[in-house]
Amino acid sequence: MEKILDIYTRMLRIRRFEEQVGVLFSQGQLPGFVHLYVGEEAVGAGVCATLRNDDYIVSTHRGHGHVIAKGGDFNRMMAELFGKATGYCKGKGGSMHIADFSIGMLGACGIVGGGIPMAVGAGLSAKLRGTDQVSVSFFGDGASNEGSFHESVNLAAVQNLPVLFVCENNQYGEFTPMEKVTGVRDIALRAQGYGIPGVIVDGTDALAVYEVAQTAVARARAGEGPTLIEAKTHRKGGHAEGEKAFLAGGVYRSAEELAQMQAKDPIVLLHKRMLEMGVATPNDLEELDQTITQAVVESVAFARRSPDPKPESIYEDMWV
């Protein structure tokens, strides 16, 4: 029961943070560009709820959700998105490079598939150091067509590493439907090519994600090797915020598809289920929402009042 509330809290923290980021971006208040995790919350939250603080995750360009799911701090995240000195990376990383090594979050990654080898290396490190830590690589359906994915899964398989390969299949690589550019319908099938288990899970069902992740984590901790989990999910927004502007009216998703996706909102689904199960009262969940929303608002205030990085800090954090 407590775990369900924990997972829901992680999801709602992601949702409210991302909604705020979307608003700030549309108002032109954030430099650069952002890829929001809205709609995919059940995956990051369900997986990270099975992890310890000292377990590792490596994320993607759509990485805010993973940071929050692993226990990241709103203030330092928001400050990073504003490019402030108080941000996680002192303004040097931005949306696609947020990391928090103190909670095992080894960084988001701007290159599709670029983070996967690192996650394998963290798993190798755990094995060589003789710990029972596990390492999770989050990536998308698009990344499963990168060489880095195939090299990494094979390496983890032959070395029997404690790694979870979590494919967040949101059906689109940027604006291209997955089936147009992918030789298989199910990314999980690719596990067979490397002799490891491949599992498909409904990525909008947080508890189902939690369950398959738990099994994979237990396997990894027991020294039984990696698992590929394919979570079928949806991104509620675009590839990047503000994409309408640069798509110049071009449309790539039908109204019908968007409506179907709306009906599978993972937070709405879990909310309903929790009430049915008696995990929480509507009042409890409303209070939780208010607390989270307030924390998001405070993070924006924190970011705004934070100092800008000094130009001369470009020469800091170079060589050790």
């Binding site: 590792y56 490596v58 090594f101 080894l106 670029g114 996967i116 080898p117 690192m118 996650a119 394998v120 290396g121 963290a122 798993g123 190798l124 490190s125 755990a126 060589l128 150091r129 390492s135 060489g147 880095s148 090299e151 990494s152 094979n154 390496l155």
Partner: peptide
């Protein structure tokens, strides 16, 4: 590519 990146993962974790 995979081995070079796995090295980074091992390096940043001690």
């Amino acid at each position: 590519l995979g081995v070079a990146g796995a090295g980074v993962g091992a390096a940043v974790t001690g």
